[in-house]
Design a protein around this nucleic acid. Sequence first.
RNA 1: GCUGGCGUAGCUCAGUAGGUAGAGCAUCUGAUUUGUAAUCAGACGGUCGGGGGUUCGAUUCCCUCCGCCAGCUCCA
Length: 644
Amino acid sequence: MSEITITLPDGSQKQVPAGAKPIEIARSISARLADDAVVARVNGGLFDLTRPLEESASLEILTSKNPEALEVYRHSTAHLCAAAVLELFPGTQLGIGPPTEAGFYYDFQREAPFTPEDLEKIEAKMWEIQARDLPYERVMTQKDEGLRKYSDAWMKCGLIAEKADEYFSEYTLGPHFIDFCRGPHVPSTKRIKAFKLLMVSGAYWKANEKGARLQRITGTAFFSKKELDEYLHQVEEAKKRDHRKLGRELDLISIQELAGPGLIFWHPKGGIIRKQLEDWMREEYLKRGYSLVYTPHVGRWQLWETSGHANFYADNMFDRMELDDAEYQLKPMNCPFHILIYKDKLRSYRELPVRLGELGTVYRYERSGTLHGLLRVRGFTQDDAHIFCRPDQIEDEIVNCLQFAVDVLTTFGFDKYEAELSTWDGGASGKYDGEPEQWQLAEKALRNACERLNVAAKVMTDEAAFYGPKIDVKLVDAIGRKWQLSTVQFDFTLPRRFGLEYIADDGKAHQPVMCHRALFGSVERFFGILLEHYAGAFPVWLAPVQVAVLPIADRHLDYARSVAAALERAGLRVEVDDNKEKVNNKIRIAQVNKVPYMLVVGDREAENGTVSVRNRRHGDQGSKPLDEAVALIRGLAESRKPFE
RNA sequence: GCUGGCGUAGCUCAGUAGGUAGAGCAUCUGAUUUGUAAUCAGACGGUCGGGGGUUCGAUUCCCUCCGCCAGCUCCA
């Protein structure tokens, strides 16, 4: 028997017989490693622990501490789920069953929908199969033979025809279950210790909404019961900070059925927070060389034909309305209006870049099933700006925009975000407007900007806007979903469509280039994400009520009001709780409403001109002279610092 | 828009195997005047999402529309 050389991660080498399995090598290193092993990395690729090594290779044993091992483990759990479904519901068609960030899913096609009770049965069956300790066995099959074997399984057949090499791998689980699958998998079902099926929902075959409708069973799996329980607990906790729940509880916003879905009502307390956000943003605009403009909410249809939205954006627009002899369109975007301001006079190269900014409210038709609280609505206000500049200025402008976007995120304490660079499809589909050279140039400028600011942007092919490529910044909500906030978009197209010009130093007319950018993205969405980010406990500068003054008894009301007056003179938002309740109750109310500071006033305070300071997070801070308390809270508000 | 689920008081929820509903909180009133997360009592409050059908009778069963939730698709 020939020997092969196995190189371990520490550089050491082992001679083993050809055909040795990674699990055997692991055991030869230590029994514990073999027990903890989930999957092997062989020459960089993932391998089953039980797959024989035929040639010399590098080998790394991945244990439960490795994220890739968790993916494999979840993938194996998905197979277990499919095997359970087939045992309980023979004839069900299998789609795909990959691991995801938070678990796994498996797509099935079957006439009757899976009910919550079915889910319980499936989970019980999974445990039953788990207990059988079935190996995940890798079998190689020849393509034509495979197509015959899977002739009853139309989705698998499709996948094999499309993806399989001449010989492809399958994995069995017991005598009856076999699945076309690249693998790898854990060695056997007894390795799967903790999982839970979470829901059943709809999906489309190959994510195509014209394709077959499937039922998706989603679950999660962890290496231990403890980790699973922690995860489930964390999900429950996250739900408590859902912006829809907090928005109602804190009386910030509402959505009114009578007015229509996806349309936001800002209540007084939400309104004051929004004003703080908007004031801050407008100040930043002015500091950074933007001008503020205001434009109408509707415009003639011809405007949208000129801009191209009539062609490229028709599906997302509210219906046109007729007025006199003309048709008008509610605006889904602000850009054409800002362009008209640019175009209203002859521009010199000396005044470029022109940066026109607006908190512009737009209306877009979003399909009913996609609406989601504040995060996906039909009417929203963008902190939108359009920058018109010379080609040689565009890269600096994009760098400034991106820097601005990063500054917004840090101001509000977001340290986790993802950047994406969306590019076109190369022009194949015709959904994109403009010349190839322009697209290439634009993409290059965006890439360079990312590099200059050290922003790691993931390239997303075929995700660009119809008028140009873009950089997007995404944040994650309480339930782990990603939402786009900032966007910096390049545009060669609209300047051409509108015939924009500036007079250059050569005395001739040239076409400016344009950058669209929104940093909050939409005020509604940003507010929703912010609400979840702070779990409703806003920092002092944003809190709708910054201070609650809590008199102990009625005889302290006058003093309480004088305290409130002093706070108001300092520009703070104050409420006096004059209910006939005990202080304990007043404190509770203020805590529940997440008021940052409570000032308790009773006999001692009224006598000494002091207040007893209570901090929302840290509780009783003892008494302080009134001036001192006012200065403290005002300082926090003005600094726009995070709370505490 | 699609698949599935859901819709009972302002909020959170219970209930009716078909005989027009109940709790806690909130609100209002009264008593209590209280020192760092809920004082007590009483009252008010619902065409049980809208419309249609079956039935002697529908909040309950059926149909339909609207809205919400999860996922898909799409996107700020």
